[in-house]
Design a protein around this nucleic acid. Structure first.
Lengths: 238, 238
DNA sequence: TCGCGATTAATGGTCAGACCATTAGACATA
DNA sequence: TATGTCTAATGGTCTGACCATTAATCGCGA
């Protein structure tokens, strides 16, 4: 049955309205980072609402990272950094397992793109960096450390792509996924394989052989996924 | 100078403590998605704090997307979806705008990916939808309308990719890009070309010819970019 | 005049109690 | 049984009060 009537749009709560006004002002630049906003009592009067409503609006914006309330001082417009967003994303993923596959897929797309660009534009400096991280993988036996080396290798490539948006996205995805397997330690048996995969990728980058680089990166990601799922399955059986 | 003394850890505000308790419960699984949490008055009594404190804690968690308050019903643990993630990313774009060309690049990557998946998995329903939008392009002469038809065509493809995260990202990019050229209207002279490009893409999708679909999409995006730059240049000269 | 401790005012944090608006469910009526 | 009504529960808002912290001010003594 087709709906005969349109839904009546819910009117925003007072709190929402206030939040909107603030966000608009921040967007427009009327409020800049570091600016102090009027005290709550003052705002309550200006908006013609109760102080508690103002407080809830502020609370909402504080928890989004937009504002920062300093007791005894006042409330200030805050620089939202990517950590805030990452933290929120982690929460999202905690509650909803669905996007997991989507994130993995998106990650793959972006990694492939970055490897292409990296292979094309790689500089001597980047090659040295990548070699450094592979070297570190060999030296560090601790799984925790190796995780970091692995990460740095990939992020170095991402950085070489010269697209900050993509870099940030990959960083976000990584952090989100990490939460997922925080307790899944890398199997030492697989470390050697993993290192070798990285070496292949690096070789292709050095040779600027884009097709090979993509191929190796693809297989590396696939294998990594497989290893991960194996571990997760194993853990489930415990 | 190294700090001689450790910072005295600020004790959490009452509100924070409450939030922590809740987040812990959610992590532990004591609270699951859809669960109803006790009413505010009840919680205030249980925690031995004022209702407003409880409300602020809840407000904070609502704006993080963890909870959802329904007037007259109660407050529930919420299912977070990629819409939330989109919104969070949107915020991050405010504070840290990424260059235009990065967005364009990312868009291209994602569109190519979606066209591949769409060509592979397209259903009859989707084909009909795509035909509908091309048809609409022919009928609507207004540039504004055509912009919408164009958009819908692309978003239909994005939707067919079955990755909501990517869909939302593309939507986000579109919104951001729109801000850049909000006043740049499409040249009617180009409309015919544009429509034809869409038709080629659709044909390839129908034939499930992935390579062709990608090829046409790539060239469509390229041409669109060129047209856009032309208009921007023209405007500059005014 | 300068330095420093004490005082004060401003401000965010919390509390209590009240009323409003909406909702779902119980209730009553035909 | 079906339908409309009423009621209690609940989130949303308002008021006014007090607390804790902070920065600015004041005032005293050197």
């Amino acid at each position: 049955m087709n709906p005969l009537f349109e839904k009546i749009p819910q009117r925003d709560s007072t709190c929402e309205v206030i939040i909107n006004q603030f966000t608009k002002m921040i967007k427009k630049g009327d409020l800049e980072i570091g600016d102090k906003i009027p005290p709550e009592r003052n705002l309550a009067e200006q908006f013609g609402v109760g102080r508690s409503t103002i407080r809830e609006a502020i609370k909402s914006m504080t928890s989004m990272g937009l504002l920062e309330a300093r007791l005894g001082e006042g409330t200030f417009v805050r620089r939202v950094d990517s950590d805030d967003i990452k933290q929120q994303l982690q929460w999202s993923l905690y509650l909803d397992p669905v996007p997991f596959n989507e994130l993995v897929e998106l990650r793959k797309i972006l990694e492939i793109k970055t490897i292409k660009k990296a292979a094309l534009n790689r500089t001597e400096k980047e090659i040295v960096a990548l070699e450094f991280w592979i070297d570190a993988m060999r030296k560090d036996n601790k799984a925790q450390r190796n995780k970091k080396n692995d990460l740095m290798f990939h992020m170095t490539i991402a950085k070489a792509s010269n697209n900050k948006m993509i870099y940030n996205l990959l960083d976000l995805i990584r952090m989100s996924l990490e939460e997922w397997f925080e307790n899944v330690l890398e199997d030492p048996m697989n470390v050697e394989n993993s290192i070798h995969e990285h070496e292949l990728i690096l070789e292709a980058i050095i040779k600027q052989d884009i097709d090979q680089a993509v191929k190796f990166m693809e297989s590396h990601l696939e294998l990594g996924e497989q290893r991960l799922f194996q571990r997760i399955e194993l853990r489930k059986e415990d």
